[in-house]
Design a protein around this nucleic acid. Structure first.
Lengths: 114, 114
DNA sequence: TCGGGACATCGACGGGCGTCGATGCGACGA
DNA sequence: TCGTCGCATCGACGCCCGTCGATGTCCCGA
């Protein structure tokens, strides 16, 4: 577009996030970018045992069981939750490394301006 | 669904994220849940002056100027960026309080399991 | 005054997302 | 063996999102 000879501002030469890194982290944020899924992760993480079964999670929302199962699948596919079937019930727990990977985004100099 | 008399697991009694809080933070995450917008914020934040003009941001992507402008508008509408027009060029800078609001999500006990 | 450059906006298109009812699948109890 | 319960999957619907070309708007220099 603009001529490389004249620069209107700084050339953004500092170390920013790479395109590959952005493509990796974006799905994690996309999985969390939903009020229902955000509350699901919060409910599971804040549980005393660190895990929760689907039957209790269903009662926390005014949504169909199919919808909750769909959201849990999205979080599980993104690698944010682990699934464990014990008898009749299914328990979900958070993957701390996945959550810390997102948390590290806002601590790196690539996103923290100060 | 299940009878309240028999509980299959812990009742999730710990302090989790409220529905209102989830509705407030989810748009911020949704604005960041895109590889292009993630790189845009990273490019602006990692700039030496803390700001960047649209003309340079356009050259960092193989996208149309209209698309970049659209992404910048999404980030601006979410409150993540501030807009300042200086002469012919428009400069964007990150709002640190918005970014720290998202970063605080992964530091609160509602999401940090350990 | 007028031409041109920088950026925003518009309208349109294709694809993905959130939600639902219905159905399938395992695991337990009678 | 058979019913039932917990959960996943399927198909469908409406809506929003990312991207584009075309056009509008504002500002500066000639």
């Amino acid at each position: 577009m603009s001529d490389p000879g004249l620069a209107c501002c700084t050339p953004l030469s500092s170390t920013a996030m790479s395109a590959e890194q952005a493509e990796q982290v974006a799905p994690l944020l996309k999985a969390l970018a939903d009020p229902v899924r955000l509350r699901l992760v919060s409910l599971i993480a804040s549980s005393t045992t660190g895990e929760a079964c689907v039957c209790d999670l269903n009662e926390a929302f005014d949504l169909t069981q199919a919808t909750i199962s769909h959201h849990l699948k999205v979080l599980h596919s993104a690698g944010l939750l682990v699934r464990e079937k014990r008898g009749v019930w299914v328990y979900y727990a958070v993957r701390p490394e996945a959550l810390s990977a997102v948390a590290g985004l806002f601590s790196t100099p690539a996103l923290a301006p100060a």
